[in-house]
Nucleic acid binder design. Structure first.
Lengths: 138, 138
DNA sequence: TAACTAGTGCAACAGAAGTGCATTTATTGA
DNA sequence: TCAATAAATGCACTTCTGTTGCACTAGTTA
């Protein structure tokens, strides 16, 4: 049994061939991926399967969904630095306006945000937009 | 000539009846509104007109677009506290998980966010989710 | 091996966003 | 004032993302 299979089972997800492939794909990509990205990477597979696989992964805390402001949901593997388990994913995301890619800055935590009296903060989504390291280096 | 007409003209937008109505609607609402909201408020008008009006307003910096993570674009009037003009809209938005409304917290500025070397921050989008003052008071 | 459950494939739908084009309304200049 | 021009609006359609229902297949368990 491979590492990936173990990981999936640890999250109560049965390691089917499809799921292993998708997990591997997500692990190789260093950026957050959209459903369409996976779709084009796995042209042979059905969109619905990929969609439901992502939903399963999300539900089982294998990936976290990212809303980077493009209007398209993206997903990235949860890492050690990602505390999705406690529903408090407090790292920020960076969206590059040039290459259009979104990366997790897991080591950068979101500072404490103060909200007015009466407001109860449950979750914070912070997306920084600009030029990423790859694009700015050119 | 009314206040609204003056405001529109100041932003190089011709004050048509439709635009004045939409502006008035936005001014009355204290929360960010989606296209569909305006649509149902102005059942007689065409969706396209409303859509393009919002786009025009956005382009001319009369409103700013808000991405509150629901996947639906919302819009709110730019106020004195809103520095959309310099493309640095640094106030945060609060999305209520209960009533599903999104408000601008213009008086709450986004703290300085540090990004890793090589990354260039141009814009920051911060959405706090939770329970708003109206809902928490009940 | 039969019964059952989970996973996958196919088709179709919903909602939001966006475009092209014709028509109407407003503005400008002779 | 009226024709020419530009801007705004209305209508029909398209595209894209996300989502669901249903049938079929594979894999698991009694």
């Amino acid at each position: 049994m491979t590492e990936i299979e173990k990981t999936l089972e640890n999250h109560q997800v049965r390691p089917t061939a499809m799921r292993i492939l998708i997990y591997k794909y997500l692990a190789e990509k260093e950026v957050a991926v959209a459903l369409t990205d996976i779709e084009s990477a796995f042209a042979k597979a059905e969109r619905t399967t990929l969609y439901r696989t992502l939903k399963t992964f999300e539900e089982k805390k294998i990936v976290h969904q990212i809303d980077d402001g493009t209007g398209i949901s993206k997903y990235a593997l949860c890492e050690s630095g990602c505390n999705c388990e406690i529903d408090q994913d407090l790292h920020l995301h960076f969206h590059c306006n040039n290459c259009n890619e979104t990366v997790c800055l897991t080591e950068h935590k979101i500072p404490q945000i103060k909200v007015p009296d009466g407001f109860v903060s449950e979750n914070v989504n912070l997306v920084v937009k600009g030029i990423c390291d790859k694009c700015s280096g050119q």
